[in-house]
Design a protein around this nucleic acid. Structure first.
Lengths: 396, 396
DNA sequence: ACCCTTTGTCCACTGGCGGGAAAAAGTCGT
DNA sequence: ACGACTTTTTCCCGCCAGTGGACAAAGGGT
């Protein structure tokens, strides 16, 4: 089970591996066009990578009109594991070396049941994926948890919605179980990495990624790297105040963004509207399901329910208000909206956009796309796989 | 007048030059302790630097008990020029290679008079400094302007308070006049670099620096580098909304931070209080000076004037409210407050701190110092000198 | 067929770099 | 005051990685 995957010996090799990961198989010559190495040097480094087994030669490359050349590709049996632990569910996926998803499972689970129960569940899901034949062992795993993480160590710190996780040595524990290197980060940061790897943020170097799920968080990318902050809590925007002396929030303060928008607040508002009789549509859904969530509001809204539309618009305006401030501060090249509420779709997006474009200065917003994430449920696991592959594909 | 200063040939040399700049003269052996180079390699690189004239040998180093060694220092005749163009005044300073200020001039000047007039004034001040004998020519110059700058090109873009500067090729123009390389950046970014070079932010890698002068801006430092953002407008926090449907702001929106605090708003509020009869103290000062500024409010406040204290407290709370949000987002290791209103001192700081510590989560604020800048008026010019020296001390 | 292009391989030369040894010039103990 | 020991600088040799050119292999186009 344990698998000691080789690591590149130098920055050149690391560069080549990432090129092959992100651009797919190519010939030596095409690699040479991309890196600034002499032909001899390139040949030497590729040969060494072939020796370690990290890459293999296969098939002929498309001809460019001269001597035929063989393609070089990452060893096809490499497997990365991506785990995304959300507040209320777990995603686990296996990818090939190019970070394409080969198998994906999702299971509801409350993170508050604690690290032991959650990790048992994760391991069961991993076993199931393994049984399905997509992987035998893993060369690296990335885990996203819904709270701040002391980054290099991979240890959650003071996570508000994850009692029992504080200081839990997640990285160590899982590394033992899986027999491969493990990287841990905040789930929102991984979503950002996912969108950077395979989603809307490809080739954008400065952006942030707002995830609106049960809570609200934000992954910050500076110069292509995730910004963790001094204590690993960067992007924790759910408790920014949007209303002085506003609603009581679970964190103890008043008027936090999360007290107005995000899964929990939205559900509460919707249920209130259902019981008040303000929205017959929502009342009907509440009757049917026993409780309401973002998905129900989406349904009601698309059925033309005014109350639901108002809830989305008001929430979007609140989020937009916060984003507008952050855009002024950070001047990103892109803002990505993701998470459970993306089902609210264009109503939400329009509302956010209106607010941001109205409140920020033209220089910062002039050419600023605000878009929904492309990857949906696989953003987190893709980012997790990318995190661990970045680690594996860096000089030892 | 034109001066072609040599540049380091590789990253090792650049590293050595910066070590000598920031740590002062040292012997070869002490340099060897700091960089990971073999003795031979180090000797070769130092010899080359000696040949180019960027460094010189002088005097004996403090003995560590063996063969005596000579100190290596940056060529003492190197001179950097730092120019800080504020909204209402210009600072010009000349530094030695260690970025210590040898001569400093300050002149009031309204930036709205346009780039030509301002640059004439700058050149006059430079000439005066040159006449005073601190420098003959310059090896590099850094300029700070009070508005967004397209960074590598050194061109102001759409500066709200600087009509006539949009697109003005500041870098080119000044480079012609001074006969040396010129770097241009936002004045707030330079203040941040200054505090990082010689002030409170030494050895802090992630922080931001809020400058409250006529306007309000913020320099953002990530991993030791200034973050410019996609269009160069990162840190433009003066127009973050702090009050929905609040006061009309000059930018066209309502409720901007700058409409409540910062030099202009503060002066207006103070004059209003003076005329209302709410503050006899301020009325007296208004009578005496014809108008009021931050300094007058500081005087009144320290004389115990309640209205002035309230103004400071309320403004501090508003700034604190914005900073609290940014702290949650960015999770810095330090927040520096600088600019013209630092005269308001501890009343202001206390008010900001209260607000930030109350509104942000403990994980982000737990160990977060919020302090006044150390460098005051020389922060900008020091940062400007650092900017240009960083440029000069990087591989060609 | 012939020529040109592209790709892969080989090899000799160069220059950088590490580290040993010795020389230079101190400190410190006796 | 002298010798032993340290620290620093300088010199020098050998290793080896990387460069770039030559050459071979294997196509395409005319």
């Amino acid at each position: 089970m344990r698998r000691m995957t080789a690591r590149p010996a130098n920055a050149h090799q690391a560069r080549l591996l990432r090129l092959l990961r992100d651009g797919g198989p190519r010939s030596r010559a095409e690699l040479g066009d991309r890196v600034d190495l002499s032909r001899s040097k390139l040949a030497v480094e590729v040969d060494r990578l072939l020796e370690t087994g990290l890459v293999v030669a296969d098939g002929l490359a498309a001809s460019r009109g001269g001597r035929r050349s063989h393609n070089i590709r990452l060893a096809p049996q490499l497997r990365f594991l991506g785990v995304d632990i959300g507040a209320t569910s777990i995603d686990v996926a296996v990818t090939n070396p190019e970070l394409e998803i080969l198998g994906h499972l999702n299971q509801p689970m409350d993170v508050r049941e604690g690290p032991v129960a959650v990790f048992d569940q994760v391991l069961a899901m991993v076993a199931k994926l393994r049984d399905s034949g997509v992987a035998e062992g893993f060369d690296g795993a990335g885990i996203g948890v819904p709270g701040p993480v002391r980054f290099p160590e991979g240890i959650p710190v003071a996570p508000p919605i994850m009692p029992g996780w504080d200081g839990f040595p997640a990285r160590e524990a899982l590394s033992q179980e899986l027999g491969c290197p493990v990287m841990v980060d905040n789930d929102v940061n991984l979503m950002a990495m996912g969108e950077m790897q395979a989603g809307v943020a490809r080739s954008v170097r400065d952006f942030f990624c707002v995830k609106i799920g049960t809570g609200i968080g934000c992954g910050v990318v500076v110069g292509g790297d995730v910004h963790h902050g001094t204590t690993g809590s960067a992007g924790d925007i759910g408790h920014i105040q949007v209303e002085p002396e506003g609603r009581q929030c679970a964190c103890g303060n008043r008027g936090c963004l999360e007290a107005y928008f995000g899964g929990a607040a939205l559900a509460r508002d919707a249920e209130e509207a259902a019981r008040d009789g303000r929205s017959p549509e929502l009342a009907r859904l509440l009757e049917a399901n026993g409780r309401l969530g973002a998905a129900d509001i989406a349904v009601a809204a698309s059925a033309g329910d005014g109350t639901s539309l108002d809830l989305i618009r008001e929430g979007g305006a609140r989020v937009g208000q916060v984003i507008a401030g952050l855009v002024s501060f950070f001047n990103p090249g892109l803002v990505v909206i993701g998470g459970g509420v993306t089902g609210l779709g264009h109503t939400l997006l329009a509302s956010i956009r209106t607010q941001v474009y109205r409140q920020s200065l033209p220089l910062a917003t002039g050419n600023l796309p605000i878009v929904l994430g492309e990857l949906g449920q696989v953003a987190g696991v893709t980012g997790a796989a990318r995190l661990t592959s970045d680690h594996l594909f860096s000089p030892a």
